[in-house]
Design a protein around this nucleic acid. Structure first.
Length: 282
DNA sequence: GTCTCCCTGTTC
DNA sequence: GAACAGGGAGAC
C-alpha cells in the first residue's frame, strides 16, 4: 500500500498548498466513520465533542488560507488543520500501524484514513461552525498570490509605516501577509536585494514593488516544484518537494553567496534564524 | 509591538 | 549532553 503524503520540515504556503492539492482528490466526498484523538491538546473542541462533530460527516472540499488547511464538511462546518513546524498529513490504509507521534486519525468509510503525525506536538486541528472561526484564522492578512498587486503593495506600505522593527518581521507577520514563513521570507529578501535587518519603514516604494515581484515569482516556482522538502519524504505518487535545490540563502549557513561569492551571514532577526548576503542585500 | 514558550529530533 | 530549530498563542 502506497503512502501518500510528503514530509516537509516547516510547511509554508507552497507546501501547504501542495498538500491541499494532493489530498483533495483523495478525501473529496469521503465520509468520516470514526475519529481517534491521541493528543487532547491538539484538537478543539475537546476530544469527545471534536470526534462527535466529525463522525458521519462528508468532506466536500479543501481550501487553504495562509498556512491553514480548511476541510469543508457537508453540514457547513469546517475543520482547520495547521501543521506548524513538523506536522504531516498522511493518507493511508486503515490497517497501517500508527506512526510514532500520531496525534489524530480520521477514519473514512471507504477503508482509508488520514493520519496527522506531529513529533513536535505544535500542530492543531480545530472544528468550527462558519459563524465562529478561530481567532488565528480571522486575523490573517492578504494572500500573497491571489491579491491584486496594488492592494497588496498598499497594505505592505501601510504596515511598514508604523513598524520600527526589521522588514523581515513584517513579512513573517501573518496578520499582514498570510503564508510566508522563515524559508521564503529569507529567499524573497535575497531576491529583492533587501537586507532582512532593514527597518520596515525605510523600505522604498520601488523596493516594495521589486519585493512583490520576487515574492510572486518565488512562491510560484516553489509551487511548481511542490514545495521545499528537507530530509526524506514518503510519497506514493512522486509528489516530492524539490524546491530545496533552488534555495539561494536559506539553510546555507557558513556558505558563500551564489551571486557574489561573499560569505553569507546568519543572524537572529524577529526571533528567527536568518540567512542573507551582506553584499547583495542592502 | 516584541518576547517567551511550547516540543522533540537533529546537530554540534 | 547541550544547543538549536521555529509558527503562533499568549503575556507583557
Amino acid at each position: 500500500m502506497a503512502i501518500i503524503g510528503v514530509i516537509y520540515r516547516m510547511p509554508e504556503l507552497p507546501e501547504v498548498e501542495t498538500i491541499r492539492r494532493s489530498l483533495l482528490p483523495l478525501v473529496q466526498g469521503a465520509e468520516i466513520e470514526t475519529v481517534q484523538v491521541f493528543l487532547a491538546k491538539a484538537v478543539r473542541p475537546a476530544p469527545a465533542e471534536f470526534a462527535a462533530g466529525l463522525t458521519g460527516r462528508r468532506i466536500t472540499g479543501i481550501e487553504r488560507r495562509g498556512k491553514y488547511l480548511l476541510f469543508q464538511l457537508d453540514n457547513g462546518q469546517c475543520l482547520t488543520i495547521h501543521l506548524r513546524m513538523a506536522g504531516r498529513l498522511v493518507w493511508q490504509s486503515r490497517t497501517t500501524p500508527l506512526a510514532k507521534h500520531t496525534t489524530l486519525v480520521i477514519n473514512f468509510r471507504d477503508g482509508k484514513s488520514l493520519h496527522f503525525v506531529d513529533p513536535r506536538k505544535f500542530g492543531t486541528a480545530v472544528l468550527f461552525p462558519p459563524a465562529a472561526p478561530p481567532a488565528g484564522l480571522t486575523a490573517l492578512g492578504l494572500e500573497p498570490l491571489t491579491t491584486e498587486k496594488e492592494k497588496l503593495l498598499a497594505v505592505l506600505e501601510k504596515a511598514a509605516a508604523r513598524r520600527s522593527g526589521p522588514v523581515k518581521g513584517l513579512l513573517l507577520d501573518q496578520r499582514v501577509l498570510a503564508g510566508l514563513g522563515n524559508i521564503y521570507a529569507d529567499e524573497v529578501l535575497f531576491a529583492a536585494g533587501i537586507s532582512p535587518l532593514r527597518p520596515a519603514r525605510e523600505v522604498t516604494r520601488a523596493e516594495w514593488e521589486k519585493l512583490y515581484g520576487c515574492m510572486v515569482a518565488i512562491l510560484n516556482k516553489a509551487l511548481v516544484h511542490r514545495g521545499t522538502s528537507q530530509r526524506d519524504y514518503v510519497d506514493g505518487r512522486g509528489e516530492a518537494g524539490e524546491f530545496q535545490h533552488y534555495l539561494q540563502v536559506y539553510g546555507r549557513k557558513k556558505e558563500t553567496c551564489f551571486a557574489c561569492g561573499a560569505p553569507l551571514v546568519y543572524v537572529r532577526v524577529a526571533g528567527r534564524g536568518t540567512h542573507y548576503c551582506p553584499t547583495c542585500q542592502k
